[in-house]
């Protein structure tokens, strides 16, 4: 498996991808909100597709490319989606934000000019309890060329 471009080995295939990322690799961007696929705080890209890392076992994705929020931008340069979230106040407590940013980055990689309906579809599985979705939609609209 590659995680954010780096090859990693996975000793226990039956471990949840979320636990492997957070506990073994120290990538704590993906969060555990519900542990059952409902909230999207654990969203990562597997071969470019957003999935809930709480519902995937490492061994099931051992031959894939995984990208977490840490691989979307880097310490020195934010991804345009992240810049836009800052500019549009699209993150309050921030718990949902890594998952939302990954979902949006996944969408934009496939569809640089999404319609609002596409953005809504991409965020169906990401719950935000405090910012509300309007600021998030405004931020995404500003990067969707």
């Amino acid at each position: 498996m590659r995680v954010n471009g780096t090859a990693v080995t996975t000793p226990d295939p039956a471990r949840r991808l979320l636990d492997f990322l957070r506990d073994d690799l120290g990538l704590i961007g993906a969060k555990e909100g519900c542990g059952m696929g409902e909230c999207g705080a654990c969203t990562v890209l597997v071969d470019g597709d957003p999935v809930c890392s709480c519902l995937v076992l490492v061994g099931q994705v051992a031959a894939t490319d995984v990208v977490t929020v840490e691989g979307i931008g880097d310490d020195h340069r934010l991804h345009p989606v992240q810049e836009a979230f800052v500019d549009h106040y699209a993150s309050q407590c921030g718990f949902c934000t890594p998952g939302v940013v990954v979902s949006v980055a996944g969408l934009l990689a496939k569809n640089p000019r999404p319609a609002e309906a596409d953005v809504r579809e991409a965020l169906e599985g990401n719950l935000c309890r405090c910012t509300g979705y309007q600021a998030i939609f405004r931020a995404v609209a500003s990067v969707a060329e």
Binding site: G37, T43, E124, G125
Partner: peptide, 9 residues
């Protein structure tokens, strides 16, 4: 069905 994340698995 579900959400995009769910449909992808």
């Amino acid at each position: 069905f579900g959400s995009l994340q769910i449909r992808n698995r």
